[in-house]
């Protein structure tokens, strides 16, 4: 079994570690670096619970080997709020806050993946329709919410992000 020395930048921090060729990115993050925000629901790319951003793109971290991410910037859900994972309800990222206010989570297991997917969706399309939101979340399974409040949360997050963004709010 080959081993590799790799470097990842996770939520802004540089992490150096040695992984086997077969180590999945999600396991490197969770078991080696203790970023347990990304969850494992299927380990085969079908549920989306493990979604992180890799160099700005939402990816399912169980579908990548850790070595493939060597040299990359990784953002996990822990890196979303201003104050990191220790944020209380007042310091959440607007997307996280919208999930909180719209009751878009129950057990919370799918939530890190939902938040990371939604972040990319809203970056690409700041004002999506409900249908577009549903289509963009197709790869993220939630067994608790029936998606209704998840869609509400993404809609409401889109509103608040647009209001924050000076280019769409008509500010300077």
């Amino acid at each position: 079994m080959y081993e590799h020395d790799i470097t990842l930048t996770v939520n802004g921090a540089t992490e150096e570690l040695t992984v086997e060729s077969r180590t999945l990115l999600v396991h490197a993050l969770r078991d080696r670096l203790d970023y347990t925000g990304p969850n494992v629901g299927c380990e085969s790319g079908k549920c989306g619970a493990c979604t992180v951003h890799l160099d700005g793109d939402a990816v399912k971290s169980c579908t990548l080997l850790a070595v493939q991410a060597d040299g990359s910037d990784v953002t996990t859900v822990e890196g979303m709020a201003e104050g990191g994972a220790d944020s209380d309800a007042d310091a959440l990222h607007p997307i996280q806050r919208a999930f909180h206010e719209e009751h878009g989570l129950q057990c919370g297991y799918c939530t890190p993946g939902m938040v990371m997917t939604a972040a990319q969706v809203l970056e690409e399309e700041p004002d999506p329709s409900r249908e577009a939101i549903r289509a963009s979340l197709k790869g993220n399974i939630c067994r608790c919410t029936g998606y209704h409040n998840v869609v509400n949360a993404v809609e409401s997050a889109a509103d608040s992000l647009r209001n924050l963004d000076p280019s769409t709010a008509g500010g300077e």
Partner: peptide
């Protein structure tokens, strides 16, 4: 919610 949403 807060701890579930932040990965904590």
């Amino acid at each position: 919610d807060a701890e579930l949403l932040t990965g904590r």
